[in-house]
């Protein structure tokens, strides 16, 4: 197992560097000058050409693209991810600042989606063709189909404005000098739920399909014939095996999760990587955009590896 993981990680290195190179080139191809992107129309009216040239020179934008790429790769190899054009701070610091809130939101949303998705999928399989099965299928289809920006705005309208149950955004109550953990959880629930809803659909469908196959297997019939309690058969034998394909689905959904974060963090004023991505694209902050693409790629690679390892742990028949 360890040698497999090591081999996969080694293969990932050229893949990630390839992604770095491609994203650097694509980001440079974005139309628009980063210096002017930072300026208001009024500033553009009065800014001297010297100021713009000076800023371009400070950011290294006056150099050929391959020189910029070489300088940037040099920084990456030293553990830096370059300097932000907009904030004039190390990109690594900016990412470090934002990755915590994103991780909290993503992990919570993923957990909610998994728990609800697996439970709904399991019971839908056990009650195949019942009203519950149809209802869960329709609901999960709707959850996938509704755009998350719409869902987010509706959630704010219903739960924050009309019912006043949850705050509209942010990570904590500002008037409290030391907000409690409960206050932070209170702020987390609504964005995490909205993000989770978009993820639930595939979990329900895959769990149901997988569970339907598993409960028809001979070992399930044998376990039942031997008098093992039904719930133990379902959760102890059936679900364990049904979840193996789900680990792959979770890994495949990581990019969807990252895209969802971009929207949800903006709507709920959640100070994470998604919002930083949006701001960086609008401000043509090339180093930050490339760094976020790189980190997203690392996550996708790691989650795929984790999915394979988890599948092997769940099913001893799988040999890595």
């Amino acid at each position: 197992m360890l040698s497999y993981v090591g081999r996969r990680l080694l293969i990932s290195v050229p893949v990630l560097f390839g992604i770095l190179g491609i994203s650097f080139i694509f980001v440079q191809m974005l139309p628009g000058d980063p210096v002017r992107a930072l300026m208001s129309p009024e500033e553009l009216a009065t800014a001297s050409p010297e100021y713009i040239e000076q800023r371009r020179s400070e950011l290294g934008l006056d150099k050929p693209i391959f020189v910029q790429f070489a300088a940037w790769i040099g920084e990456v190899l030293q553990g830096n991810l370059g300097h932000s054009f907009r904030r004039n701070t190390p990109v690594a610091d900016m990412i470090f600042e934002r990755i915590g809130p994103t991780a909290i939101l993503a992990i919570t949303a993923l957990s909610i989606a998994l728990i609800i998705g697996v439970l709904l999928g399991t019971f839908a399989a056990l009650k195949q063709n019942s009203w519950f099965d149809y209802l869960s299928s329709v609901t999960s289809m709707m959850a996938v189909s509704i755009p998350n920006f719409f869902l987010g705005l509706m959630a704010i309208y219903i739960f924050s404005i009309s019912l006043g149950i949850f705050p509209t955004g942010g990570m904590r109550t500002l008037a409290a000098s030391n907000p409690s953990a409960l206050d932070r959880v209170h702020h987390l629930i609504l964005p995490a739920l909205v993000l989770a809803i978009n993820l639930i659909g595939p979990y329900v469908r895959y769990t149901r399909q997988s569970m339907l196959e598993v409960i028809r297997q001979d070992y399930i019939t044998t376990a039942r014939a031997k008098g093992v309690p039904w719930m133990k058969v379902v959760f102890g034998h059936g679900l364990r095996n049904a979840l193996i394909p789900l680990t792959t689905v979770i890994a495949i959904q990581v990019p969807i999760l990252l895209t969802g974060l971009l929207v949800i963090e903006t709507i709920f004023s959640w100070p994470g990587l998604g919002r930083l991505t949006f701001e960086s694209i609008m401000g043509r902050d090339y180093p930050v955009i490339v760094a976020i693409v790189f980190i997203s790629a690392v996550f996708v690679v790691l989650f795929n590896l984790l999915a394979d390892v988890t599948a092997a742990a769940l099913d001893p028949r799988i040999r890595l």
Binding site: T173, A175, A176, N178, P179, S180, A181, L182
Partner: peptide
């Protein structure tokens, strides 16, 4: 989080 603060208005 810091210690619980009752002022959450």
């Amino acid at each position: 989080s810091g210690p619980n603060d009752n002022d959450t208005s």
